[in-house]
Every structure is written in C-alpha cells, then in structure tokens.
Design a protein around this nucleic acid. Sequence first.
DNA 1: ATCAGTCAAGAACGATCGTTCCTCAATCGT
DNA 2: ACGATTGAGGAACGATCGTTCTTGACTGAT
Lengths: 166, 166
Amino acid sequence: MGRPRAFDEDEAVRAAVALFGGRAYDGVSVDDLVSHLGVHRNSLYKTFGSKRGLYLIALRRHLADDVRPLLDALAGASDAAAALRLVTSADLDLLLLAAIERAPVDEEVAAEVTAALAAVDQAIADALGVSADLAAALTAAALGIILRGNPDNAATALAQCLDPLT
Amino acid sequence: MGRPRAFDEDEAVRAAVALFGGRAYDGVSVDDLVSHLGVHRNSLYKTFGSKRGLYLIALRRHLADDVRPLLDALAGASDAAAALRLVTSADLDLLLLAAIERAPVDEEVAAEVTAALAAVDQAIADALGVSADLAAALTAAALGIILRGNPDNAATALAQCLDPLT
DNA sequence: ATCAGTCAAGAACGATCGTTCCTCAATCGT
DNA sequence: ACGATTGAGGAACGATCGTTCTTGACTGAT
C-alpha cells in the first residue's frame, strides 16, 4: 500500500559510498546527498534515519561490496607481492577515510574499521603463513600506498623486496 | 605602539597544530581554536587572516617542527629498519590528516603535502641508496603503520623482512 | 469510489558555521 | 599628559548545517 518509492535504495547507498569515499564526512552535506542520491530529504530521513545512519549503512555496504571480495581474493594469494597487489588495487577509499577521520570520533565506525582491517590481516596471515604482526604491517603498507595514490611503482618495488622471503 | 598582545604566537600555532592534527579540518571550529589557543576571535583573524590561513600556517609549522627533523635524522639511517622506525615514531598526524582529507580539496595543502612526502622519499633514497620507487613505498608503508596506530610490532616485523636486503 | 498509507516536494526550523563590527582597555611616541 | 594605535572582549552578521513539518500527489485494498 501507499505510493511506491521512486528511487532504488541499493543504488542510493552505492552513491553514498562514492560520496563519502571522496570527501570527509563533514564535507558531504545532506544537500549533496539529496542531489546525488536521487532521494529526497524526507525519504532520506525516513529510510536511513539520519546522515550518520546513512554513513554507517554506506560504510557497511562498502565493507560488504569491496572488502569482502578482497578477503576472498586474498585467500588465493601465494606471496606477499600478490597480496600487496590485491590490496592496493582494491577500492578502499571509504575505509581509509573512515579509519583516519571518523573512527577517532565515532566508536561505532571505529569498531567496523577495526574489524575490517583485522579481517584483512587475518586473510593475509592465513594465505601467506606469516605472523600476525607482519600481516598487519603488510595491510598497513598497502593502505599507505593507496593513501599516496601511486599503487603501481611503489607496490611493485616493495613487493620485489618482500617476494623472496615468503 | 599599541597594546601588547597577551598571547604567544608560536605557542598558539603549536596549539593549532595539535588541534588540526587530532580532528578533521571541519571538525575543528573557530570556537575550538579560540578556546584552545588563548587567542581571541578578533586577534585570530587579525593575526592569521582566516581559519584556512591558520591551518596553512599550522601545517607549515608542523612540517618545519616535525618533518624537517625527521629528514635530518633519516640522513643517518643505515638500513630500512632504522628508516622505518624513524618515520613511524615521528609525530606525523597532521601531515597524514592533511594528505587524506584536505589535499583533495585544497591545492595549496596538496602542494605542501606532496613536497613534504617527496622530501621524505628523497631522504630515504639518499640514506639507503635505494630506488625512488622503493623509497616512496617505504614512506607509504610507514604512513600506513602510523595510520593503524600500532607503530611497534608491525614496524619491526616489516623491518625484519627488509633488513637483509639493504 | 473511497479511505488509508506512503512518498515527493520544498519551506522552515533552531543550531552552528566562519567572519565582521563595535566598544573599551592598554600601551606606545611625543 | 595625551593622542595614536593595537589588542581584548563580545555581540552580531549572513550562510549553511542537519533535521523536521506541512502540503499535496499517487497507489493499494475495501
């Protein structure tokens, strides 16, 4: 019953992932969301509760859509180079931004981020048979390379150093 | 002539570095700055021009106070482990935050960040005699480790893998 | 056909944002 | 001592923030 909604909720959340992944949380206004998501103000609050609610939903969606496939792919990585290449070529913008600017001020975000990064660590440790510390370091290194925006040369250079050891 | 200022400009800038290094740019309000810097609104605008002006000054101060000493220390690094330890133990919070959340939307910030990271790369390349790509990767790895907040175990684990190669 | 229920559309809310203005206090050179 | 100049203090600005309210259009079930 009632009037059918004129927007695709999945599509809206995906657009929110793109928006929140491109700018800081406070840099994305509700007006931005309304105009880019194809969802009107009222429906946005009815559907997602609040801006923060939508952010959390977008973050979880990002983890499900982008991090989970990465975990599966990492299971097939045979050396550090492959693992590094997989992580650095994944789209982790929102996770990175969440880790550095939202996690410190939002403990629910912090919990999601910590769990996601721990899952990546575990996947690397399992696939390569390395220590948890080294796996965490590899994850961190990959994040740093993503942060710098140059996934190709830096990742391969580091991988060449790590290859013979694993 | 005129009334002498009741605040220490250097001290105020240093407090601004701490504030901007701890939260996102939009998360630090002018009220926050006024109450933490010991500078009143009027003097803040008179002295620093604007919030963004103060941010740029704080960023440059951070580079001079924290990155420059790091560059000097890196000149004495003899292996990758030492370089990693130096970078990960440096206080680079503001640089990290600037790189990920301000550089994309403020080209002046982007220029400072790019130059600072390039300087770190160069210092590592010079000290270790490694390629520019590997130096950039080491810088990125260190930033990623800082980002994850666990400088000790991860950095040493990664360093142990890189040590015999340099 | 009618009523209940949902959504679209946009005006409007109070709060807070960065910034400016105005007034008074304090110190300088003369 | 006195006018000039600068900072302190705080009110106030318009703009924008996230959020809510009001109104009307549309659809499904009775």
